[in-house]
Design a protein around this nucleic acid. Sequence first.
DNA 1: AGCACGCCGACT
DNA 2: GTCGGCGTGCTC
Length: 730
Amino acid sequence: MTLFAQVVFPLPLDQVFTYAVPEASRDKARPGARVLAPLGPRREKGFIVEVTAEPPGASIKVKPLLEVLDDRPFREERFLEFTRRLAAEFHCSWGELLQASLPPSLTLRTKTSAVLTGLGRERLEAKGLGPRERAVAALLAEAPKGRSPVFLRRKTGGKDVSGLLGRMEKKGLVRVTAAPAPAPRGGGGPDAAGRPVQLGLAFPEAAREAGPLAPVEAALAGGRGGAFLLVGPEEPRRAAVRTLVRQAVGAGGRVLWLFPEVAPTAGLAAEFKEAYGRAAVVFHGRMTEKQKEDAWRALRSGRAGLVAGTRSALFAETGPLRLVVVDGEQDDSYVQAESPGYDARRGAVLRARSEGAVAVLTSSRPTVEAFAEAARAGALIDLGSGPPRDGVTVVEHARDVPLVSAELGRRLRANLARGGSAILFTNRRGYAAQVACAGCGTVPRCPRCDIALVYHKAEGRLVCHYCNEAVEVSRACAACGGGIAVRRGAGTQAVEEELGRLFPGVRTGRFDADAAGDPESRRKLLAEFGRGRVPLLVATRLLVHQPDAPKAGLVAVLRPEAILGFSDYRAGQKTFETVSALLDVRSDESGAEAVIQTAAPAHFSIAAAAAGDFRAFYEGEAAFRRVMGYPPFAHLAEVVLQGRDVRALGRRSRELRALLQGAGPELEVLGPAFAPVARIKDLSRVQFVLKAAERAAIDRALDASLPKIPLRKTVTFSYSPFDGVKPLIF
DNA sequence: AGCACGCCGACT
DNA sequence: GTCGGCGTGCTC
């Protein structure tokens, strides 16, 4: 009897393919094994997700697998099931998620290399080649060992060279070889990834009275799973998480601890070591392949009690998992935008569910969605709100000139006189000026991205903040030939310039993506600021993401209401979160002060951030979302279609709209409309917003229509970590 | 994603 | 004529 393997590939295809299992591979072909399979004209690596005796429908012609690469599945079956669910929920590629779950040594890479043949060399010298062929041949003539297609593409102007190489190979001008690339070897420096050691700590089963943590502790102690949102001020929250971690590890379970990308990873690793012995393995995006491989080895050795990392650590092999912690639940970095797009917060709940573990999402200022859903599901653990934030002055200031209000100027002056230092935050880099034609009002736009260019005075250029393409400021308007006028704005450069005028002789620094490009100059600037040599610092939010971000005796937040202008239903949440994070940069010393300078002092998101009052923010935001029918009071999904050809894009959009509307009356379809940024790097973007009372209606419509639209597409969902978590204990 | 196929303008 | 760019469709 023939067996059939269902295979998924790490390609942006949400499709399962069926192959015949060769007799010789019957024993090895099991779910979770990696395979080599013919896919169209190529051989692709993939993953078996199921083996059946059931032959597929007659419409598909089954090919045999070329090879089964593993004797044993690389992960347990329940991990496969977890990734299947995650892929299904986010309508992303299952194969790509599995690929992301592999240690570097198991990801199959092929190294493609093109070499010039004798005939190719002859023809190059005889000038018998086309211009692109000649460019490629000339590069290959210099490289007897061959060059990769990626190298050739970069050197010949960015256009795809694979087709060209194929034709040249057919003509005998080049030889293209594909050899497996060597896997990275582990065993780098000693302790490169924080080598795990068995925890030697004792965990006495201390008798504790029933506190707010009781439901979580009961689930942990009873060996059951569940999902909770733990909300409260930082200190008690940390203490609570520590208690839970110790309880889980004490019972012999493993802990997976996710933290935001912005967190100070180096410090965190040290902290884990201190608190939990040396049993932590840390993963983060800045690690080299070798370090990652070492970390995987440490995990495979089975001695690590704790696995910590940024969102991709969601896929780490932990062993018997008991607890998943998501720290800083409100943080955007849990969302992966690029394919495979998923949300690690929801992923944490799904993974906990698949392993019967407990998921604890935790934050001082959680997302409205998580807070509302957790409360509704009875999953909210509330540790209270802590003392209000004081010493924050909200100054109403609606004008751009001057950028620094009289009130803020006074406080800065007094602060400098005391020998203190200050940080001023603004949300634009560059000069952020209004650049427009004085005659017709035309605003210069990026030719590739359809977005207004930002004036950078220091370099005298207009810069596109999407593709970073810079254009010299031209004197004449492209539309009418009139003169271009520059009105000053509120970007970092403009603020720094104004500080220079207000406080001549005082050194100022600028911390944004332009000024503090490389890590070295960043460290230098922050060190100077820390020593008081540069007492005034103008920064964007980027500063908060720094590992050793300094604190200041005076923090000023300029124009936070600009965030409210984004066309995003989460704008209020973003404003509250950003202002709160910026205010946290204020030092803990008594007398430290903060100023919010805004045109919208009464907006609840700004007022609540000033007061450090999450509840006040939540009430205001929830009321708004209820009235507007936004999450958590409805389900939303956003589909973005991208294409180079606007006409094809329009046609596909109309097809998609028809398909979505056919899905049923319970689904509201908004669009197609051009996305807020209609073009990025010459890729046009069209978006739909889908709205429904039940998530299932959205899923049904997407499942039925997306596979029929052959375009690059991304789907983002309204965030709902606790969706369908009922019963709460699973 | 890659890769082939097939259609169109621009050159030996 | 035919080369090479580019849009379209398919992969068990």
